[in-house]
Structure formats: C-alpha cells, structure tokens
Design a binder for these strands. Structure first.
Lengths: 129, 129
DNA sequence: GAAGTGTACTACACTACGTAATACACTTGT
DNA sequence: ACAAGTGTATTACGTAGTGTAGTACACTTC
C-alpha cells in the first residue's frame, strides 16, 4: 500500500488519495475485503491532516468503492459494482472529448492516444480477466 | 460564433470559454485571423462579467491560440503551432489514464472509448485534412 | 479499562472564482 | 480633435473549496 501524494500538484490531496485507491482497486492490487490503513496511520505516513484522509474515505464510500465500519476500520467493497449512470457516462465522454482537443494542440496524434488507452486498459483488465 | 455557457456546471466560466474557443479553432469553425467578439460584447451576450471574458482571452493568448491587439481586438492566431511540450504531454497522459479508470467504474468498455476517440478525432481533422 | 477505529464539530487561513465599478491606453472612424 | 470601440489594470467584495488544528464522541477489540 504505497501512496504517492504530491502537495505541489494542483489536484487536491483528498482527490489524489481517491484516484490512487480507485486505481489500485481496479488493478487488483487491493483485493475486495482488504483493509485500508486507518485514517490516523495514513495521515501520519503521508504527513497530511487526518481530516483530509477522512474526507477521501468518505467520498470513496459514497462511490461504494470502500466500506467503513465504525471502530473496526475501512475495507475494500466486496462487490465492486459498475453502475451505468448516464450522467457519469456523459461526463466521461466530455472529458475524453476535451482530452482529444488538447491532444490536437499538443501535437499528439490519434495513434498515440489509442496506444495509451490500450496500455491503461491492459493494466486494469489484462492480468486476471 | 455561438457559445454555450452554463453557470451551473462545476467547470469555471472562463474555462468553458477557453474550451469552446479551442474546440472551434481545432474544428476550423474559427479560421486563423478571424476576429473574436470583443470582451464587452461577449460578456453582455452570455451575461457574465467582462473581467471573466478578459481572463479567458488572456489565457488563450498565453496558449498562443489567439492574438490580442490593443485598441483593435482579439484574433485567431495565424499559425497555430503544435508545441511538443513534455509536461503537457505527460499531463494529457495522466488525464487519459484517469479517464480509463473512471470508465472502468462506470461500466464503459474499451471498445466504447475507442469509438469515442475516433468520433472526436474525425470532428477535428476529418473534414479538411 | 486501554488502545485503536471512524466520525463530528468549530475555528482559522489561504486560494480560486466571479462580480462590480472605475480608470487608463490604444486604434479607428468621422 | 473628437467620439466610439478596443483590451487592460486596479481595487474591493462575496462565495466556495481546500487544508490545517484541536477537541470530543461512539464504537470495537484485546
């Protein structure tokens, strides 16, 4: 369970935690039922405030990625559901659209984008599905 | 020159202007040398503060998408360069990575992502290159 | 009971975002 | 020269998001 938190990034700290937990779960590095580090432990490890870690955990629970049990700890959700939320889908579509446009300005061609998608997809589903 | 600005979105107003101008330029809807609406005109049209429009224009000029001439107006840059900035490239790569992860949770498969990229790429380069 | 969990609350500081009003410098037209 | 139309700069204000700090509470496990 390693976290790479960079306070200098423009991405909020709690958002970085959320992203990395979701990535590790999707990659299978974190298995369902597995215990996450406690709020106090993680906050002291990456030297940020416990409240910030708690905020990240609460958002992860809202997204049903993890489950928290008072007095026991936080755990990876047993059944990671893939909800087909139309709003979420449209949001992702728009983000992707903007990424393609930005790529155009950065001189990145379609072929490169496709290769990257292949690469990231392989990291997620490749090794066990 | 139509803008679709939505104050209810979590995306900042000036960011929405930036995105739409870049999209229209990339699509060829806005031609190099073409004049953009003045700060005051656009701000009154979409009913936001002139400063917000000015902020968007300043950022667009920093990105060399447009050129501003004091007393004359703002215009689309004649030669839209595609700078190969390593930092920009890496940022786009990370955004794409996160999008793939989010897609996994939203139940969107690789095939759909690939089709979307094809679609957006076609909208940009398809009709004249 | 003690230690370790997550949670709730208040207070404070900093930044981003957006508005509002005003003023300045420049170009173009008459 | 003048007026109108450009972008720009400045100051002030309000709101929201982010993060820290400290404290307290409720629960579980040993």
């Amino acid at each position: 369970m390693y976290f790479h938190i960079d306070p200098k990034k423009n991405v909020p700290l709690y958002e970085q935690i959320i992203q990395q937990v979701k990535e590790m779960v999707a990659k299978g590095i974190l298995q369902p039922g597995e215990k996450l580090p406690s709020v106090r432990e993680l906050s002291s490890r990456i030297v940020i405030n416990p409240n910030t870690v708690s905020k990240a955990y609460q958002e992860l629970e809202r997204q049903e990625v993890i489950v928290t049990i008072r007095g026991r700890g936080t755990f990876i959700n047993e059944d990671v559901i893939q909800a087909k939320d139309p709003k979420k889908t449209e949001a992702i579509r728009q983000t992707l659209k903007q990424t393609v446009i930005d790529s155009h300005y950065a001189g990145i061609d379609k072929k490169t984008i496709m290769e990257w998608v292949e690469e990231f997809d392989r990291e997620l589903r490749g090794d066990r599905e």
